[in-house]
Structure formats: structure tokens, C-alpha cells
């Protein structure tokens, strides 16, 4: 297992370096002076700062040397400086990271738990009205644009009904502490996390349902029935566990979309995470910050992938025992 994790970490490192290289070439491929790109919107930074950038990134040196300098900087956790926000990019990102992790992880758990539950339920009632309702809802969630659901959620639950806060991370100026603060954050979390989770809930529901139905046709399920086992036990012990394997795989593959979805959700709910930061960078044309966020979100995806891979190995003895 340790060897496996080590392998995966090495692979992740290679991918991260590849992303950085991509970032680097994107800066150079962008129309205009790379220094100006790094500084933000052309003309926004003063000449002195741009000169400083040229020095630091060796923009007059050959391309490969520049790449080396850039990669070297990242190794020291230096993602550059945001001229617009007057702060190092890494600091900006790390300040916002916890909020994003809280949001994405909550959404992920909501989606996985409710999604598989609904999938199991639908598969058990295949063809009945409850299956139809669940499947139709899933189809709708699957087809709805995330940002629109977010806006409608704000409109209904925050504006019309006034049940939940639809804006921000906690109540501004309330200065809650301890448990009270946690509760306040949790209240703010409900709408964005549910919104972000909805799409993935639909994905997991559909996958679970299909997978349960597929597994229930396999020979070993017939064996279990021939033993005289009750349907409930067969569902849980034989069908569900086998049906979860592809769902776990899918969950890993979907991690990237979860992070992407966070950009939209955080933008609508003014959730102070890196997704919102990305939107700010976008509106201010702060490309260095934009690329920094892109890099960190890719790193997050790799982490998600690693976790699901480990989970998969825990569930499936065929992989666990062989290695």
C-alpha cells in the first residue's frame, strides 16, 4: 500500500510539473508582453514593476532558462506576486483554501451519500413511481446549469423565504466565536454546498442505479438467492458492495469537475474560496493569480484522486491482496 501511495505521489508530481510547464507556455502564448501579462492588465502596472518582473523571471533569457527559473520558484512555494492585490499569489490562495476545502468536501459528502442512497432506492423499486420520480429529478439536476441553480436557490431561500443566508461565509460584523461561529458558518454553508452537490448527486445516483441493476444480474447474486438469503441481505452484502466499485472510480474522475463547479458556486454565493478568487482574478485580468489558482486547484484534484484510489483498493480485495 505504501509503495502504491508513493507511486501515485510521484505520478502526481509529474502531472503538476506538466501543468506548471503548460502555465508557463500559456503566459508566453498570450497576446502581448509576458511581463505585462504577469503584471495584470496591460498598462495597469507601472514601468518599474514590469522591469522588476523582467529581472526576476529573466524574461530576456532563453525560454528554457525562464522555465527553469519559474519551476524553481514554485518549488519554494513562490507562485509570483499579484500586483492587483498587492500580495504574493501563494498567500492569497492559502488564505482562501480552507473555505474551498470546506465547501467542496461538504458538497462531495452530501452528493455521495444522498446520491448513492437515492440510486439504491431507485434500483430496488425499478419501474415503480418512486424510481420514476428519483430518476426524473436526477435527469433534471444533471441538465441544470450550476450557476443558475445557485441563483435560483438564493432567490427562493434567501430573498423570498428568507430562511437561509445566501451570501458570504459568515455574518459580517457579528463577531461570533466558538460554537456559535461554527453554527453561523454551517448556516451559510447549506445553500452553496447543496447547490454544488446537486449535480454530482445526480451523477452518483444514475451511476449507482445502473450499477446496482447490472450487478443484480450477475451469477453470484443467483448463488446468493439459491442459498435462501433474504433479499435485503443480498442487496446490501452482495449487490451494493460490488456496485459501489464503479461509483468510487467515477467519484475520483469527477473531482476535477467539483473544483470547477466551486468557481461558479463561490462566485454566486460570494463564498471566499479560491473559486471566488479565480473570478476576481478574471475580472481584474490578474493572469498570474489566475494561473496560480489553476495550479492549486489541479493539485486539489490530484489529492481527491489519490483518496478515491486508496478507497478503491480498500474495497476491492483483488487489487489489495495482489499488491
Amino acid at each position: 500500500m505504501l509503495r502504491f501511495i508513493l507511486m501515485r505521489l510521484m505520478k502526481a508530481a509529474v502531472i503538476l510539473i506538466a501543468i506548471l510547464t503548460l502555465n508557463f507556455f500559456l503566459i508566453h502564448a498570450a497576446p502581448g508582453d509576458p511581463a505585462a501579462v504577469l503584471a495584470g492588465e496591460a498598462g495597469a502596472a507601472d514601468a518599474q514593476f514590469i522591469e522588476q518582473l523582467r529581472q526576476r523571471f529573466g524574461l530576456d533569457k532563453p525560454l528554457l532558462t525562464q522555465l527553469g527559473i519559474y519551476l524553481g520558484g514554485v518549488l519554494q512555494l513562490d507562485l509570483g506576486y499579484s500586483y492587483r492585490q498587492q500580495m504574493p499569489v501563494a498567500d492569497l490562495i492559502f488564505a482562501r483554501l480552507p473555505a474551498t476545502l470546506l465547501l467542496t468536501l461538504t458538497a462531495f459528502v452530501i452528493a455521495l451519500v444522498l446520491g448513492t442512497l437515492a440510486g439504491v432506492l431507485a434500483s430496488a423499486r425499478v419501474g415503480k413511481w418512486s424510481d420514476t420520480v428519483i430518476s426524473t429529478l436526477a435527469l433534471l439536476f444533471y441538465a441544470t446549469p450550476l450557476f443558475w441553480v445557485a441563483l435560483m436557490a438564493v432567490l427562493v431561500f434567501s430573498v423570498f423565504l428568507n430562511w437561509l443566508p445566501g451570501f458570504g461565509y459568515e455574518t459580517v460584523g457579528a463577531n461570533y466565536t466558538g460554537f456559535r461561529r461554527a453554527l453561523d458558518i454551517a448556516q451559510h454553508l447549506i445553500l452553496p454546498a447543496t447547490t454544488l452537490g446537486l449535480f454530482f448527486m445526480a451523477v452518483y445516483m444514475r451511476m449507482t442505479r445502473a450499477s446496482m441493476l447490472e450487478v443484480s444480474r450477475l451469477d453470484f447474486v443467483k448463488t446468493a438467492r439459491a442459498k435462501g438469503l433474504r433479499p435485503g441481505i443480498i442487496q446490501r452484502r452482495h449487490i451494493f458492495r460490488n456496485a459501489m466499485l464503479p461509483v468510487v472510480t467515477l467519484a475520483g474522475l469527477q473531482a476535477g469537475q467539483l473544483v470547477g463547479g466551486a468557481v461558479l458556486t463561490e462566485t454566486v454565493f460570494a463564498w471566499p474560496g479560491i473559486g471566488r478568487l479565480m473570478f476576481e482574478a478574471l475580472t481584474q485580468r490578474d493572469y498570474n493569480l489566475l494561473l496560480g489558482v489553476f495550479f492549486v486547484s489541479a493539485a486539489m484534484v490530484l489529492l481527491f484522486n489519490l483518496i478515491t484510489d486508496i478507497l478503491y483498493r480498500v474495497v476491492d480485495p483483488r487489487i489489495r491482496v495482489v499488491s
Partner: peptide, 20 residues
Amino acid sequence: EFFQTVPSFALAIVLVAIFE
């Protein structure tokens, strides 16, 4: 695999933003 691992929406944002 590389392109699949990279968060796709974030990459799309970066590409469109940088290339106008």
C-alpha cells in the same frame, strides 16, 4: 490522462481568459 486530471472548467477559464 493529463488532460483528464486537470480540472477542465478551470482550464477552460484560463484558456479563454488568456487568449481573449
